[in-house]
Amino acid sequence: MMAAAAILGGTRPLVLDGIDRAIVRATQAGLPLTAAPYRAIGEAVGISEAEVIRRMTAMLEHGVIRRIGAVPNHYRLGYRGNAMSVWDVSNDRVEAIGEKIGALDFVSHCYWRPRHPPLWPYNLFAMVHGRTRDEAMEKVARIAEILGTEDRGHDALLSSRILKKTGLRIAG
């Protein structure tokens, strides 16, 4: 059993309890595609439809849930070029640069991660998608242009096989 996690959102922390976790677990694979999906979730978790809606609204407002909606399968929709671009930028500048790169419309995820020199010198990760590998690589080149001399080295790792991809799963 996990300790309750406090998530800061706005000024009030939201403390998640076992019921919130059960709701998230019950919706991991998606909402049931039936007329009253929150009622179905409530039945699975053992609470009312109104309580499911109230708790999901609170989790959304506090950023525990980022969004609720259709999650497209980019690969299936023709975005076959996927490159994980990785960048070595100064730690002092990584936040400002990350904000800028993360805001680009062709970047789906942008994260600051630790380096592991000498094996891994990169600290900024930006995932780019294109219909082809060339298109993805053109987008990597655009990021390099934007960074200019702040780019102290980069690489782009194209995906050759998706071996496993499932929604986030939570233990417990």
């Binding site: 996990m2 996690a5 998530i7 998640l16 976790r21 998230v24 919706t27 991991q28 694979a29 998606g30 909402l31 595609l33 999901m56 989790m59 959304l60 950023g63 525990v64 849930i65 980022r66 969004r67 609720i68 909606g69 259709a70 999650v71 497209p72 399968n73 299936r76 929709l77 991809k165 929604g167 986030l168 939570i170 233990a171």
Partner: peptide, 16 residues
């Protein structure tokens, strides 16, 4: 397969 799911996207580290 055009849609993986219709549902919630949970913030990383919110629940684990």
């Amino acid at each position: 397969g055009a849609v993986s799911r219709v549902g919630a996207v949970v913030a990383p580290h919110a629940l684990g």
